[in-house]
Structure formats: C-alpha cells, structure tokens
C-alpha cells in the first residue's frame, strides 16, 4: 500500500491554504505532520481523507486516483479521526465503537458476529473494555480520545489519518495514544498524525513533514527536520543550546 501525492494545491475562500505540497506514505510508516497553526496540516489531512478536493496536483492510493475510488470503498481503507470530534447522542462506548464498522455494512445489513469480534479486539487493544456500558458524555477527555480512536480502528483501515489525537491529554494519555498509533503501523498499517508536541513527534514518528504557510519546509527523519534553523523559520522559536535533538529532549527555549 502506498499514497503518492504530488503538487497538491488548495484554495479556501480565495486564500491559498496548500501550495504544491508533495507527500508519500508506505505501509508500516508513522508520519508526523507538524507546523504552526494555520500551516495547512488539517487541510492536507482532509484532502487525503477525500473530504475536500484539491485545485491542482495528483493524489493516488496504490496508483489509483483517490477520488476515483468509490466513497464506500475508500472508507474501508482510510479512516479519519477528526480534530474536534463531537458526538451528538450519548451512545454507550461499545455502540460508539461499533459505528466504526459502518463502512463494511450495506444499507440493510446489521452488524454480525464477525463485526462484534473485531469491535471486541479493538476495545481490548485500546483498553476501553471496562468502559463499554458507560455513556460517551460521561467519559473523561483521555477516555474519549481512546474511544474515538477505537471507533476509527474498528473499521480495520490500512491508513489512519489522525488530526491532533493527543491534544488536551495529559502526558501519560498522550503516550498511550501514540503507542496505539505505533502499534497500528507495526501491524502493517500506516498512520499520518498531526501533532503540536515536537517531543512526541521526535520520539514516535519515523518521518516528519514540517508545513509552513501551506508549503513543505522540511521532510525526512525527525533529526533532519527538527533542526534549530527549521524551527526558527516555522515557529519563530529559538531552541535551547543545550537541547540535544535526538530521541530525548527538545525544549523550546525562547521566542526569536
């Protein structure tokens, strides 16, 4: 499985949001999308999910034009975890995770034993079995994040597109969610995750793509992307001199 995107450009309301962005993704990869607010990360993710169209450029999944794949087929292969997921009705946790099977159901077909087995496995993996009868609106932020992730994983997608799945979580829940994404890649899937925490990005992602003002500023292994120069240019940050940009610390030190 691979995604090939070339020269993707998007304008929203006449304003260019993405300018000729390239992106590739292969099975087993955990790709982190980073960049300051308004850099175009969410737009790129929606593009890859087939939710919006690009004005120019090409976007292919396994050498097939992404938008030419019927929506219900696409939905079986690509799951999208939105940034601010609202849940309109107070479903129980199990019911909510079961919704993730919808891409595999026909109009009149209800969930079968197989669907329920998959839901069970996913709930085990995301450690939410204890919550199964709780109503979604009664959960804490960390629990909600895991339940919504379980919903996305329940569709057994090859590719998971997660928009800031760790925003507003405490450090241990952040690590938990990131490990789940990592596990998905180890099982042969691929993940693109939008992150604001550069430390997490550095620690978990094999590759990072740094977006700035709608263009790719840098792309590659975390060590090559998270350089003082790039961070200064993208975020206007000066990284602490003592900070070692490797697998341990990355401390934003002061504004430039």
């Amino acid at each position: 499985m691979n995604i090939q995107a070339q020269q993707l450009s998007v304008q929203l309301g006449g304003r260019p949001v993405l300018k000729a962005v390239d992106l590739t993704l292969h099975s087993g990869e955990l790709l982190g999308l980073i960049g300051p607010n308004g850099a175009g990360k969410t737009t790129l993710l929606k593009l890859l999910a087939g939710l919006i169209k690009s004005q120019s450029g090409s976007l292919q999944l396994d050498h097939q034009v992404l938008l030419a794949i019927p929506a219900h087929e696409r939905a079986k292969r690509i799951a999208y975890l939105a940034q601010h997921s609202q849940v309109s009705w107070p479903l129980t946790v199990r019911r909510l995770v079961e919704l993730g099977r919808i891409p595999h159901l026909d109009n009149w077909r209800k969930t079968t034993g197989l669907d329920r087995d998959i839901v069970q496995q996913v709930m085990e993996a995301t450690d939410i079995l204890a919550l199964e009868h709780r109503r979604f609106d009664s959960l804490s932020g960390g629990e909600r994040a895991r339940v919504l992730l379980a919903r996305a994983l329940a569709g057994e997608p090859e590719i998971l597109l997660a928009d800031e799945p760790v925003a507003a979580l405490d450090p241990s829940h952040q690590l938990e969610v990131m490990s789940l994404l990592q596990a998905h890649c180890r099982n042969g899937g691929a993940v693109i995750v939008v992150l604001h925490d550069l430390m997490l990005a550095n620690h978990f992602c094999q590759r990072l793509q740094l977006l700035y003002q709608g263009s790719t500023l840098a792309e590659g292994p975390p060590g090559d992307v998270l350089t003082p120069d790039h961070l200064k240019q993208a975020y206007g940050l000066q990284v602490s001199d003592e900070a070692r940009i490797d697998r341990c610390f990355l401390l934003p030190w002061k504004m430039k």
């Binding site: 929606k46 999910a49 087939g50 939710l51 929506a71 219900h72 087929e73 696409r74 939905a75 079986k76 690509i78 799951a79 999208y80 939105a82 997921s85 609202q86 849940v87 309109s88 009705w89 479903l91 909510l96 919704l99 993730g100 919808i102 891409p103 159901l105 109009n107 919903r151 569709g155």
Partner: peptide, 18 residues
Amino acid sequence: HGLDALTLGEETAASMGI
C-alpha cells in the same frame, strides 16, 4: 447506518463512506 454515522458529525460520516 447513515443516521448512525452522522452521530459523529458530518465530516466523520463522510469519511465513513456516507
């Protein structure tokens, strides 16, 4: 199924093939 998926919002429902 469409109404069920809409529980998660319009974007998520669309990403689920609705």
